[in-house]
């Protein structure tokens, strides 16, 4: 890792700002990635281990051993005091404060050890059953399909509709432009939680409740997206457009042949954000979808949350599974963020 970080680029030595940058990034990895990594590790813990207080980093389980003469594997303890101190014993049963144990080497002789003088022997083991249970428990692929369909369709619609609007709002002077812009930003001010119920009633009147389209359509015209794209398009010089108009290019052609490619970084960002929003959306699908066959991954994931308890082992395993596709998409799309005017040498 150090060798990799200190390798200099070309002939130049690392500037001090490079050192600062790498120091910052290392700290960032620790702080940003550490908790995420802990979550991923924890998804391999048993429910009991997740309840451990204080929490531990790695997934542990108690060592179990099959001892001749006993049907079930017995838990292994290490004796901490008394004549057996330091030895590993298998516990048969516990009565009050006394443990009845045997040495695995001598399963016939039952010994007694005070309850507080024993310590469980543990080893790291991955509870992969957290994952396999998910597939037994419900139709994972159905939810996966629903989530994917919603995410892909919604993102395509969002990108098209928002970029068209942003183009109009950034590259045309027309009466009402300021008003439209103000309305779009203004609606951002009302917290989404508050409008859920009115929105639900409207979507019901459109007859889209309990359909995937009822999840896709309402959020497609995101104010954030229009705002983001519009601000980016403002930085594209108007001269490019005028030159194209001189060449008799239609406005639509200018939009998709010039503006869209030049806005690639912002479009990529909006694509990533839209995919993320849709994939992780919970509140709106929860109210808009009712039949289980229409549920998304997030809804299925949250059904592990009951009134009093949460099945964290399953919930975390499912969280990790739902993270995988979106991480892959991010890895693919983030490249486009760096392909703007700068690298195409646009002007």
């Amino acid at each position: 890792m150090t060798a990799f970080l200190t390798r200099t680029r070309g002939r130049k030595r690392l500037h001090w700002t490079d050192w600062m940058a790498y120091a910052y990034l290392t700290l960032g990895v620790l702080l940003m990635f550490g908790p995420v990594l802990w979550l991923v590790l924890s998804s391999f813990k048993t429910e009991r281990e997740l309840q451990n207080y204080p929490p531990r980093l790695l997934p542990y389980v108690q060592k179990m051993e099959t001892v001749p003469g006993y049907d079930k594997p017995l838990p292994i303890y290490k004796v901490t005091a008394g004549p057996l101190a330091g030895q590993e014993v298998a516990q048969i049963r516990r009565i009050g404060l006394i443990s009845q144990v045997v040495k695995p080497s001598d399963p016939k002789t039952v010994l007694k050890v005070p309850f507080k003088d024993r310590k469980a022997v543990e080893h790291v083991a991955l509870a992969t059953s957290n994952y396999s249970k998910l597939f037994e428990r419900f139709n994972f692929f159905r939810f996966f399909y629903n989530s994917t369909f919603i995410t892909v369709m919604a993102t395509l619609i969002t990108l098209l509709v928002n970029s068209m609007a942003a183009f109009a709002l950034s590259k045309y002077q027309f009466r009402g432009r300021g008003l439209v812009m103000a309305l779009i930003i203004g609606t951002l001010m009302i917290p989404p939680t508050v409008v859920l119920v009115p929105l639900f009633l409207i979507v019901r009147d459109f007859g889209m409740i309990d359909s995937l389209w009822g999840v896709i359509i309402p959020g497609a015209a995101t104010p954030t997206g229009v705002f983001l794209l519009r601000q980016y398009m403002l930085t594209i010089p108007d001269e490019i457009l005028d030159a194209a108009r001189m060449d008799k290019a239609s406005e639509w052609k200018i939009y998709w042949r010039i503006i869209l490619p030049l806005s690639a970084p912002a479009i990529a960002v909006l694509a990533i954000l839209s995919i993320m929003w849709r994939w992780n959306d919970f509140l709106w699908p929860l109210i808009a979808l009712q039949k289980q066959e229409n549920f998304t991954l997030q809804l299925a994931l949250n059904s592990f949350r009951g009134e009093f308890t949460t099945d964290w082992a399953s919930l975390l395993a499912m969280t990790v599974l739902t993270l995988v596709p979106i991480v892959v998409v991010f890895a693919f799309l983030q490249k486009y963020i760096a392909t703007g005017i700068a690298s195409t040498g646009g002007k």
Binding site: L286, K291, Q292, L299, S303, R305, G306
Partner: peptide
């Protein structure tokens, strides 16, 4: 047909 939902 059961729809298993979050308690929320």
């Amino acid at each position: 047909k059961m729809d298993l939902v979050p308690y929320k």
